[in-house]
Every structure is written in structure tokens, then in C-alpha cells.
């Protein structure tokens, strides 16, 4: 999954790019959460869905799937348990009130709008690029470096897992359930040692290229000032009007 998402991020060509994309998304997220008007959330949902679809196509819909699957039952519960106001629908013992519909609609719209903003950011921003933007936002260097380091550590762990699983599969390590359990036990045991050894070698390679504790990040140039201005302008107008 990490590779799949990373491939999508690297291949995406968003209309708003560079650190500007991160700032626009963060600002939009604040507006979605803080605005008293539903129009802001509708505007955000429409504009960021368009941006995400443009940048990553069908991957946007795939990414939305799991959170929406959680959102729908939550909204059903809200509809069922929120009381107050006129009853609009009655199904056997269940009464859905006007207030419940309003709460569910507000919550649903707010969640979808925030999801669309986050999806655009996640689908079009490789992790190092995200941290490069945060570094420019004056997020403390140790937080950024540590996060990048953890990210690198996860990559090493996943690569090592992949290597061990392939090696085990090549010698019938997953041929039946009993073997599968035994292999998983062996792989888990080797994983920590293997990852530590690999991390040591990577650390050596980094020091060989003058790594001094600060992870460098390649910054992309800002692109898409016009769409950024349009999106933020529309959202800001819906807050004020």
C-alpha cells in the first residue's frame, strides 16, 4: 500500500503544486471546520473533489471509500438517536426528527468536505514534500527531521518485510496454514534484526554523503496561483456572505 500511494503521489500532476498546495489545503481545512455556513463546506467539497480528481483520477474515489464506509453508519446512528423538533420520518419504532436530519447533514457535509481537502493533499503530496512545506511554516526542525526519519524507518521495515516474505515464498514458506504460521513466526523474528542491520547500512550510506542529522528535502516550485486564488476566494466569500 505504501508503494501504491507513493506511486500515485509521485505520478500526480496537481493544478496547485509545491508548498502552495500544502498552505491552500491547510487554510481550506480551517475554513471548512470554522465556517458557520454550509456553503463553505459545499464549495470546498466541490472544488477539492475537482482538484483531486484532476490530480489522481479514480484513486480519489478509492481513497474516499474506507472513510465513507465509516461515515455512513455514523450518520445513521445520528439520525436514529438525535431527538428534538418535528418528526419527519417514522419507521416502526424509529423516529427521525428534523433536528436529527440537520445534524446528520451538517456532520456528513463537514466530514466529506474535510475528507476531500485531505484526499487532495494526500494523493498529490509525497511525504518529504509535505515536510518541506511544514519546515517552511517554521515547524521545529527536530519535529520535521524526526518525522522524515520515522518515515524512512517505515520504508526500510516494509522493504525488509517484502524481501523476507518473497524469500520465504520462494521456498514454499506459505504452502499451507501450518507452514504459514511457522514462516510468519520466523519472518517476524528476522524482521527486527534485518531491519536494524539494513538501517545501519543506510545510515552509513547517508553519512558517506555528508548527512549531519538534518534531512534535506527537495522543494518543488509553487505552481497554480490562479486556481489557488479562485478556490480560496470562493471559500472566503462563502464565510463572509
Amino acid at each position: 500500500m505504501h508503494r501504491t500511494l507513493e506511486s500515485v503521489q509521485v505520478a500526480s500532476r496537481p493544478a496547485i503544486d509545491g508548498p502552495l498546495k500544502v498552505y491552500v489545503s491547510l487554510l481550506a481545512l480551517v475554513l471548512v471546520v470554522a465556517s458557520p455556513n454550509e456553503a463553505t463546506r459545499l464549495g470546498a467539497l466541490a472544488s477539492f473533489s475537482a482538484l483531486a480528481l484532476d490530480a489522481a483520477g479514480r484513486h480519489y474515489l478509492r481513497l474516499l471509500g474506507p472513510p465513507v464506509a465509516f461515515l455512513v453508519p455514523s450518520l445513521v446512528v445520528i439520525l436514529a438517536v438525535t431527538g428534538g423538533g418535528e418528526v419527519v420520518v417514522r419507521v416502526w419504532l424509529l423516529e427521525v426528527t428534523a433536528e436529527a436530519v440537520e445534524t446528520a447533514a451538517t456532520t456528513g457535509l463537514r466530514s466529506l468536505a474535510a475528507l476531500s481537502v485531505m484526499a487532495f493533499l494526500v494523493l498529490s503530496t509525497p511525504v518529504p514534500e509535505l515536510f518541506a512545506a511544514l519546515r517552511r511554516l517554521r515547524v521545529p526542525a527536530f519535529v520535521v527531521d524526526l518525522s522524515l526519519f520515522v518515515y524512512r524507518g517505515i520504508q526500510i521495515l516494509l522493504a525488509e518485510t517484502d524481501r523476507l516474505r518473497t524469500a520465504a515464498a520462494a521456498r514454499l514458506g506459505y504452502v499451507d496454514r501450518r507452514t504459514q504460521v511457522r514462516t510468519t513466526k520466523l519472518v517476524a523474528g528476522s524482521l527486527l534484526v534485518g531491519s536494524l542491520e539494513r538501517a545501519e547500512r543506510v545510515d552509513e550510506a547517508m553519512r558517506a554523503r555528508c548527512y549531519d542529522g538534518r534531512m534535506p528535502t527537495v522543494e518543488r516550485t509553487n505552481e497554480g496561483y490562479a486556481p489557488a486564488a479562485v478556490v480560496l476566494g470562493v471559500l472566503a466569500a462563502t464565510v463572509v456572505l
Binding site: 539494513r198 543506510v202 547517508m206
Partner: peptide, 26 residues
């Protein structure tokens, strides 16, 4: 400069550009 035996031990960044730029950035 030191080119390692196993490139998997040397590549430290997700993309080619980021990895090649790692040293010069440092």
C-alpha cells in the same frame, strides 16, 4: 565519494531526484 556495493543500502529517498539531490542538499 563512495558508491556502495548494494544500491538498496545507498538509496535513502523515495524518488530518484530526491535521492540524487540528497548529498548536494547536505
Amino acid at each position: 565519494g563512495y558508491v556502495f556495493q548494494n544500491p538498496d543500502d545507498q538509496l535513502v529517498a523515495p524518488t530518484v531526484e530526491q535521492d540524487v539531490a540528497f548529498g548536494p542538499e547536505n
